[in-house]
Design a protein around this nucleic acid. Structure first.
Length: 152
DNA sequence: GCCAACGTTGGC
DNA sequence: GCCAACGTTGGC
């Protein structure tokens, strides 16, 4: 089992939005970065736990837990010219982008802020706080996962 | 709103 | 294959 962190802007789609979806499940479309795609496609397995991270907001940080409920399949929004995530170079017979379905698990009692994560020597290797990291999907070590949860 | 840090694109 | 220009991410 692998552990993950996925970023989302709460103004677009936050942890509360996920919780309100039917069954607490939503597809995670719009990933347009190859590194992130590869992790989604090759790494994510059903049942993998995910930290839900709020970015680009008042208090960036980890706000909840989700899990992978469906493994990678083609991201259809790439084919839709009217969609925000449309990729004109992408044809349905050769899907370039994929998505997974994530399911709501729980909200943390409080936001574990980015500042707090940066402050912890135990999390030195965490991809999230490596300089210049802009990946929307990244792996989390089990030891890091456990430590972060212990901060709650 | 600013800006650093990337990733992508396209001319050559 | 190089690299400048451009677009995006995301903290602050």
């Amino acid at each position: 089992m692998k552990y993950w962190l996925m970023k989302s802007e709460p103004g677009e789609f936050g942890i509360d939005d996920l919780e309100k979806r039917p069954g607490g499940i939503e597809h995670w479309d719009g990933v347009r970065n190859y590194q992130a795609r590869n992790m989604m496609r090759d790494g994510m397995k059903r049942g993998d736990p995910v930290f839900f991270y709020h970015s680009n907001c008042e208090l960036p940080g980890i706000v909840g837990i989700a899990q992978i409920v469906r493994e990678a399949y083609p991201d259809h929004t790439a084919f839709d010219p009217d969609h925000k995530h449309y990729d004109p170079a992408c044809k349905p017979d050769q899907p370039r982008w994929c998505m997974v379905d994530v399911g709501f698990v729980s909200k943390l009692k409080r936001t574990i802020s980015l500042a707090e994560l940066k402050d912890r020597p135990e999390l030195e290797g965490l991809a999230l706080i490596r300089r210049g990291n802009r990946l929307s999907i990244m792996p989390v070590e089990k030891s890091q996962w456990d430590f972060i949860l212990s901060l709650e």
